[in-house]
């Protein structure tokens, strides 16, 4: 990793009452990589991701995006800065169409008076864009862009959420447990999507409990334990049982990984 990290966090602290969810946590994401974040339940992964994606404001510490210090007060601000997050619950509105969902919160209005006075949405432009993005990611098996999201299968919904993030994320994409609720085939589809997004040069943060998936697609693995980054390991140099051992405290991580 010769290049500078695109997204870094230093000394993040977040307390919820007497619970310290983040205890001086550090984080580094390099351009073009897939960084997996693993950790036991309650290790503080979610809080770390929420801090980076703007859903939670850390009590202490510093987050830098491309070297600039950022202070996100909401996911919207993070999104404006180019960080898109696919939440575990997908944050899709079930009764709205695929196109409406992709543009939720950033709709395109018609040009001219229709748009400025009557605030009319440019449905055809949004549909065209959504269709293009979905087919770019090989999701065009969805035939009707106007169908409600609730009529889609779990994998298709995940696809729509990932496509939305990939379409609008300009700097970083965060995926929280993207395969947790999916079957074997659908998981495969989503993993292919993830690799596809990376091949476009976007770095991805992947939070997952699924070790085979993590080891398959990630370039580096951030192991989170007791509210902080324990170590960063290379999936090619360690086994899944190593990772689980570090994560649960069964084994001490190697010294060089700690320094990372």
């Amino acid at each position: 990793m010769a290049s500078e990290p695109i997204l870094t966090a230093r000394g993040l602290v977040k307390r919820y009452g007497r619970v310290t969810a983040l205890d001086n946590a550090d984080f580094d994401l390099y351009p073009g990589e897939i960084l997996a974040v693993i950790g036991d339940n309650g290790a503080g992964k979610s809080t770390l991701i929420k801090a980076i994606s703007g859903a939670v404001a850390p009590d202490e510490g510093e987050i830098r995006l491309e070297g600039e210090t950022v202070n996100f007060r909401s996911p919207i601000e993070a999104r404006r800065a180019g960080i898109e997050t696919v939440y575990q619950n997908l944050a899709l509105s079930p009764a709205l169409s695929i196109a409406d969902n992709m543009f939720l919160g950033r709709e395109i209005r018609k040009p001219g008076v229709l748009g400025s006075v009557f605030r009319k949405l440019d449905r055809s432009a949004m549909e065209k864009f959504a269709r293009n993005k979905l087919s770019e990611l090989g999701l065009m098996t969805i035939q009707n862009i106007n169908q409600a999201v609730e009529t889609l299968s779990g994998g298709q919904r995940q696809g729509v959420a990932v496509a939305r993030a990939a379409a609008f994320g300009s700097k970083v994409i965060i995926l929280d447990e993207p395969t947790a609720a999916l079957g074997v085939k659908e998981s495969r589809k989503v993993l292919e999507l993830i690799l596809d997004v990376r091949s476009r040069g976007l770095p991805i943060v992947l939070i997952s409990h699924n070790m085979p998936h993590v080891f398959e697609v990630s370039d580096r693995i951030h192991v989170h334990r007791l509210g902080r980054r324990l170590c960063v390991i290379n999936p090619k140099e360690h086994t899944m049982s190593d990772a689980v051992a570090f994560m649960t405290g069964a084994k001490e991580p190697p010294r060089e990984a700690l320094a990372a």
Binding site: A55, P75, I76, L90, A91, S93, P94, A95, L96, G105
Partner: peptide
């Protein structure tokens, strides 16, 4: 429909 999803979508 889903206030949580709406919020995360930036509404």
């Amino acid at each position: 429909d889903d206030p949580e999803a709406a919020k995360l979508s930036g509404i």
